[in-house]
Design a protein around this nucleic acid. Structure first.
Lengths: 149, 149
DNA sequence: TTTTCATGAAACAAATGATGTTACGAAAAA
DNA sequence: TTTTTCGTAACATCATTTGTTTCATGAAAA
């Protein structure tokens, strides 16, 4: 099953952008992510539409975060990306005539809905600022362990 | 995103089998599911390996449920199918060197793990007997509404 | 004003993975 | 011995994401 990794990608990109003062080009982000500048533009375009980032063309152009890190949640990013399907497991037929299959669908849908609600709740509780501070902690821990050795 | 619908499929098949006395052929199940007998064999084969169903060849052969309906949970079926990936969303790179990406992965993995745990818990709480009685309820409700009209 | 750098967007290619199909072998019963 | 049915391998199809190529457009620098 091929997973949608855009949320992971934009988080990676945004945290790198947060470390920079000026704008960051698609080229640079593509190098960070191990992909292609066009893919970066395509994906970041969703965030621009949602007002989370801005882009500038020409010399010294690139991408900037256009929001407070503490105000952007994973849920907002997920929504900006079009709320892609959460689960890789699903019903065989979404609108079956067969009563047996309707029963199966109802049971699975209820369960998936509950798990998705939990996921989205957690997403809404995590901000870019949280991740940035997690990163700072890891970074400093790494420095300490390097100094020791 | 293409979803794995095997759990949905086997539930559909098992409930149809529960309605029958004798064995049910792959051909019959394929008609119920709107697919191919070979696909049925392939998928039901996982359940046979797990001891949930048996198959017999030749005349009057086919598939039988080899367990008490109340003792088979959705979780067991999910496990029998090889515990396919739950989420259609995931990390871009599972073992990144980049500390930023490690931070992102850790946050997402924690959240996904929590949602998956909930899903599996719910799966372990639902048995085939539960679904069969849900079905009976729907079936009887349908008859009543038909009699009214 | 021309060149360079960057995004915007469309069109196409590649890769991936589930599902579907064909074909044939093996076993069991009529 | 013929029919039925599963078991399995190999291959085809389909959908979707991701990657690539290409060119147009805009903005700053030379």
């Amino acid at each position: 099953m091929k997973r949608d990794s855009r949320l992971s990608s934009v988080l990676h990109a945004l945290l790198h952008m947060a470390e920079q003062d000026g704008p960051v080009t698609s080229e640079t982000l593509a190098l960070c992510l191990g992909t292609n500048p066009v893919v970066v533009r395509r994906t970041m375009g969703y965030l621009r539409q949602a007002g989370i980032v801005t882009s500038e063309r020409g010399h010294a152009g690139g991408w900037r975060i256009h929001a407070d890190l503490g105000s952007v949640t994973l849920r907002q990013l997920h929504e900006a990306l079009g709320e892609p399907a959460t689960f890789a497991i699903g019903n065989r037929n979404e609108t079956p005539e067969c009563l047996v299959e309707q029963t199966v669908n109802a049971a699975l849908e209820g369960t998936f809905a509950e798990a998705e609600a939990l996921l989205l709740t957690r997403f809404s509780e995590i901000t870019l600022a949280d991740l940035a501070s997690d990163f700072a902690r890891r970074h400093s821990a790494l420095r300490h362990s390097r100094n020791k050795s």
